[in-house]
Write a protein that binds this DNA or RNA. Structure first.
Length: 112
DNA sequence: TGTTTGACAAGCA
DNA sequence: CTGCTTGCCAAAC
């Protein structure tokens, strides 16, 4: 990938690489990404890495949400995040929540 | 080099 | 059940 030329920390690259694997129409949680990276407790650091996302275009960071189904945050604003998700056919409840049972990506996909 | 922060999560009151 | 507090980790200050 073209992330390697940049001066990102190894951890940050891992997060971005992982995020890029999330297919359109699916979502992942901070916790899941953290888990794949080795430690569930990394969730906070994961969000931090995405927040400072150097490649808003290349990396679909809008497909990463909280483990309880809520949208979470977004550098460009939660509104924008929701819009993007809807465009990818990811439905959102009235309470601004996502049905993880339907849209959560397989852990195996991320490990590819 | 030490402290603070944060797009989270789990536990406790 | 809702809301607040504490814990974790990597990065930025």
């Amino acid at each position: 990938m073209d992330l390697e030329n940049n001066d990102l920390t190894p951890f940050q690259r891992s997060v971005l690489e992982l995020t890029k694997k999330i297919p359109s129409g699916k979502v992942a949680t901070y916790k899941l990404l953290a888990k794949v990276l080795g430690n569930e407790k990394l969730s906070r650091a994961v969000g931090n890495a995405l927040n400072r996302n150097p490649f808003p275009i290349v990396v679909p960071c809008h497909r990463v949400i909280k483990s309880d189904g809520f949208i979470g945050g977004f550098a460009k604003g939660t509104e924008a995040k929701i819009k993007l998700l809807i465009k990818e056919n990811v439905l959102i409840n009235k309470s601004n929540k996502i049905d993880l049972r339907k849209y959560l990506v397989d852990e195996a996909i991320l490990k590819e």
